[in-house]
Simulated assay, not measured.
Amino acid sequence: MFVRSGFVIAWLAMVFGAIRITIGLFVASIGDAAERAAAAAYRLGSRSSGEAIDQGIMVFVFGVALGLLAEIAKAVKQKQP
């Protein structure tokens, strides 16, 4: 039960982290600085697109780490009699 929920949470974290990174890169590509700042505040809820990209990377890495821990838990669970 907990292993399966670990996999689900890991996948969700990786997906949402990737989405935040993608939107952050999109906002970073906006040419005008005033439009970029407004888009970062409106679309990302961050002060800058770089901050949103950093947060997205942290969420994605958290998802990868949780996925690895879930894989380890699954292997340990299968070895128990």
Results as ranks from 00 to 15, higher is better:
R4D: 11
R4M: 13
R4G: 10
S5G: 08
G6P: 02
G6Y: 02
G6A: 06
F7A: 03
F7T: 01
F7E: 09
V8W: 13
V8T: 13
V8L: 09
I9V: 07
A10M: 00
A10L: 02
A10I: 05
A10C: 01
W11N: 03
W11K: 09
W11V: 06
W11T: 06
W11A: 14
L12S: 13
A13R: 03
M14A: 02
M14S: 08
M14Y: 09
M14N: 07
V15L: 14
V15Y: 08
V15K: 02
V15G: 00
V15E: 08
V15R: 04
F16A: 04
F16E: 08
F16R: 01
G17T: 07
A18P: 05
A18F: 09
A18I: 09
I19L: 13
I19N: 03
R20T: 15
I21P: 00
T22N: 09
T22W: 08
I23M: 08
I23S: 06
I23H: 08
G24Q: 06
L25R: 11
F26I: 15
V27E: 05
V27Q: 02
V27D: 02
A28D: 07
A28T: 02
S29D: 08
S29E: 00
I30Q: 03
I30E: 02
I30K: 00
G31S: 14
D32P: 02
D32V: 12
A33R: 04
A33K: 03
A34S: 13
A34H: 10
E35C: 09
E35P: 00
E35Q: 15
R36K: 15
R36A: 11
R36E: 11
R36S: 12
R36M: 13
R36Q: 14
A37I: 05
A38G: 00
A38R: 12
A39V: 04
A39W: 06
A40K: 01
A40V: 00
A41Y: 06
A41E: 14
A41R: 14
Y42R: 12
Y42D: 11
Y42P: 00
R43G: 06
L44R: 11
L44Q: 10
L44T: 13
G45E: 04
G45V: 10
G45A: 11
R47K: 10
S48E: 12
S48Y: 14
S48W: 14
S48V: 14
S49I: 02
S49Y: 11
G50C: 02
G50F: 02
G50D: 05
E51L: 09
E51S: 11
E51N: 07
E51T: 12
E51Q: 13
A52P: 07
A52C: 09
A52K: 03
A52I: 12
A52R: 05
D54N: 08
D54C: 04
D54F: 11
Q55I: 10
Q55G: 12
Q55Y: 09
G56L: 01
G56V: 01
G56Y: 04
I57R: 09
